[in-house]
Design a protein around this nucleic acid. Sequence first.
DNA 1: ATCTAATCGAGACGGTACGTCGAGTCTTCCC
DNA 2: GGGAAGACTCGACGTACCGTCTCGATTAGAT
Lengths: 203, 203, 203, 203
Amino acid sequence: MSSIARDPVDESISRGRGRPRDEVARTRILDSALETLEELGFANTTCDVIAERAGASKATIYRWWSNKAAVLVEALREAVALELPLPDTGDLREDIRQQLRNFIKLLTGRRGLAFRGFVAAAQSDPEVSEALRLVWVAPRRADVKARFERYRGKTLRADVDLELLIDLIYAPLYYRLLIGHAPLSEEYADALTDLVFAGIRLH
Amino acid sequence: MSSIARDPVDESISRGRGRPRDEVARTRILDSALETLEELGFANTTCDVIAERAGASKATIYRWWSNKAAVLVEALREAVALELPLPDTGDLREDIRQQLRNFIKLLTGRRGLAFRGFVAAAQSDPEVSEALRLVWVAPRRADVKARFERYRGKTLRADVDLELLIDLIYAPLYYRLLIGHAPLSEEYADALTDLVFAGIRLH
Amino acid sequence: MSSIARDPVDESISRGRGRPRDEVARTRILDSALETLEELGFANTTCDVIAERAGASKATIYRWWSNKAAVLVEALREAVALELPLPDTGDLREDIRQQLRNFIKLLTGRRGLAFRGFVAAAQSDPEVSEALRLVWVAPRRADVKARFERYRGKTLRADVDLELLIDLIYAPLYYRLLIGHAPLSEEYADALTDLVFAGIRLH
Amino acid sequence: MSSIARDPVDESISRGRGRPRDEVARTRILDSALETLEELGFANTTCDVIAERAGASKATIYRWWSNKAAVLVEALREAVALELPLPDTGDLREDIRQQLRNFIKLLTGRRGLAFRGFVAAAQSDPEVSEALRLVWVAPRRADVKARFERYRGKTLRADVDLELLIDLIYAPLYYRLLIGHAPLSEEYADALTDLVFAGIRLH
DNA sequence: ATCTAATCGAGACGGTACGTCGAGTCTTCCC
DNA sequence: GGGAAGACTCGACGTACCGTCTCGATTAGAT
């Protein structure tokens, strides 16, 4: 990962001499960042507001994060760290169906606005783009890829290109979120699952 | 369409007195807008630069367009007006395959950066969002929808949800464009077509 | 003079094409600058406060003045432009005595704080230093120098170094203003005049 | 004296428990403060730089001095403690002449920049102002005042206002130092002495 | 042949957010 | 308890872009 999110591991080991980073302030900053992000969206969130709400100073923000995007990236990362664990029902299709339903539930909640701004920022900021992939996209894709591999040759055709298949189940969600030509609903998750599985099942 | 692109009809009818709009200036502005958009992206394109390159004044820009987004939207619209006509080979699958290939060719060219910024801007500006759908997304979708309806019940299963199906073929292109986790290539268009058609063909 | 105070002459002649400078805004900025200067002193005057009080934006300030010092220099210059004309009583000694009294009156008023900050700023900013000399010091010195030359060989010894003599009558005022070891009073002007003239009169 | 320079007496008497003040650190701080002061001037000297060059921490600086000015004041005081002893040649005029020459030598050396900043800081900080008078100005003035009193009624007119006279010999040096309209040279010391003594000698 | 009104290029304007810097305070560990 | 390291708050700095406005100059149709 790039410098946008610094590695916290070394910190806890080789506690340098000076005053340690104020973890409470860090938390307050990330909390107010997320709150503002979900309230105003990415573009309308300013560092001044984050600082003020957090009771911190802008200097502290800029000491630890290179710019506004970096703060918001980390705030979102912490918020979504444990979200969307891939269900394991014993039925691949049902796993995917539930995963898509949960994802849609996330995107249609307050988090949706944050997500949209996140993807938007990634278009003009390579660091945000990289962070978006590493923090959010890659883990979700790795989960379903492992799951697909488990079922490969069983209920799943062996010759399917997994990367493409993963695109196929996730892309429509991003597409509707970002383009907004049609709503994201739970039924959409079901229909999408059905259609995709129609093309990949063993006959 | 919203106010983002003003209706040119009234202009030509009620030609009041006074100096008429300078169409050359309009063209120069849109040209330099597109040029800048493709060079710097949406977020880094400023109205001052557009005006300077066009040899126009900012006032002229804001007289005819409500804001920066409106100029760029129209610039892009003019540029893409005639692009991506849906091929008609007599084979539905081949039509889609070629369409996706052409779209990918577009997105991987200079136009890609413009598109990315366009989608990004849509996330925080409802007018851009509306324009994006009306100017670009809806026409492409209407084309393929009509084509799908022509083949419905023939080489295409009759019970397929067309809106979902259209999502399925276009979404992965936007997804890879915006997330950037994997490259967009012509082979990708082929593989995507194959996988989608595997689920929708008549057996 | 350096760039700290731009030449306004060309402006009025070759009125460039664009929107002309808003002279009202300029006046409001200089007025609020002077007001703040006399109220808070040089060091405590901020551009934000000047802008706010003037109903102007910081950008406008920085468009016309290179930094805070430049604004305050010009504000002070306008304020003192017509001040301290050298009296002409027909008696050299009386002229000087009255001039020193008037100068002391100025320095002990609200203007004194402004002056102190002005000299202070000149110590770390060469442009302020240059402006201080050109705007304030040099004109006063030129006035008295011309006067001294008029009386040279008459009531004034012909061999006196005029530059040194001018130092001798003005320096003590700056000295007491800046060091503050003793008060500046009108009697001080008289005593100073007496002592200096004791050394330069024809016997 | 105000709090700007704390009384060192208590320290040495009531050596409480704990580690005593590190005199080496104090010296390093004052040395680097003076060095930085002469190199960059008062305004451009930062506490961070002083601390870094001294291998000390800012906390140590602020434990012993109330603010940046206090450190620089003390640094300068130590540096000038033994400087400019008033010569005693048996000839009052020669004493003054040499004293002025020595002062000018000081001001035109590296020390000059420090002095200028010192006076500048005094304009917005009463504590610096007080320190400037107590540490530097008053002792010099006391020296020459005693000398003048010794010669009063002898080579010096008895009715001269000594405070004014002292102003008259020192003020021009500060004036040229701070305003910079003309150079400070040794010849200037001579000419100044001559002119002043022309007004105060017994005839 | 004016008059009138809308347009044009130029560029100054108010506003808002940015990211930086220095002063002075506070917190941790080490001695 | 003193000291080095260094994180912290506060507040000012100077910059950049947005969208508006005000000039003088231009360009047509209306009178």
